[in-house]
Design a protein around this nucleic acid. Sequence first.
DNA 1: CGTCAACCGTTCGTGCACAAATAGTCAAAT
DNA 2: ATTTGACTATTTGTGCACGAACGGTTGACG
Lengths: 150, 150
Amino acid sequence: MIDSLTHAAMDHEEIDYVLDEQVGFLLRQAQQRHTAIFARMMLSDITATQWATLAKLHEIGGCSQNLLGRHVAMDAATIKGVVDRLLARELVVVNADPADSRRLTIDLSEAGRDFVRRAIPIAAAITEETVAPLDRQERETLLGLLARIK
Amino acid sequence: MIDSLTHAAMDHEEIDYVLDEQVGFLLRQAQQRHTAIFARMMLSDITATQWATLAKLHEIGGCSQNLLGRHVAMDAATIKGVVDRLLARELVVVNADPADSRRLTIDLSEAGRDFVRRAIPIAAAITEETVAPLDRQERETLLGLLARIK
DNA sequence: CGTCAACCGTTCGTGCACAAATAGTCAAAT
DNA sequence: ATTTGACTATTTGTGCACGAACGGTTGACG
């Protein structure tokens, strides 16, 4: 009797869906905290996306705008806005590609290179602060898992 | 000689900062993928934040707008926009709180309750798809680590 | 040679996210 | 009873993020 009642209840029972245990909800909150840490610690009100763009230019050197966007996981519309704001701060320079008139070549300006040099230790500290609740092994685990679902 | 050269190099060497290994950059990309999965699978062009709001209302019942925002990790300005869009779709209803004229009470509408019932299995499938590259134990680990840095 | 598919940058519209400022309301302490 | 401080919702402004559409360029292929 109890069994049949239980079984009948199961038939109509909703899936156990608890918002606070969903990976998407947790991802959003983790990123919110990271963004807040970034805004508090980074120089000159540079945002995380702007920093990603500068850091990638520092890694790979000059690059067409769209390709740069692919390197930092931004679509064409987004990278354009980011580059425009970096341009307004004179941290990057834009040149027409003489060999292909479709392309704009984006480079760090001298001020941009200087900024990156000063900001790298801060960016490292931001990462450290973001994962501060985790020990060294847990940090490695988290990076590995995130890389696999990205 | 080699040692002293190495040591001299270390003195001026920049911190090893590789963008693709930074937790913030990986978090953003993981969330981008989740958002894309969500947009592809969810009903009626409901976004992940709108869904979070509906699902939380389903969990806790009616709620003031600001408190609802705190439950779903959105500030007052953000939750207002989300509620406005849900209101335009007639998935929620708004009533003045008779006991406190500052408050607006947000509730699921009948259509909203119906939508949540139909969407819960889909939301569960979206979570499943997001963590599909991970096995059961890795999923648990990821949720635990994210919860600690959120 | 033409054309055609693939690529480049740009623009528009929608939707989060948050800081800061505003105005109204409430409760509690003086 | 007034004031104080906390809370409510709202508005404005800036910055991602992405889909969709556009026009221009390139290179390859028939």
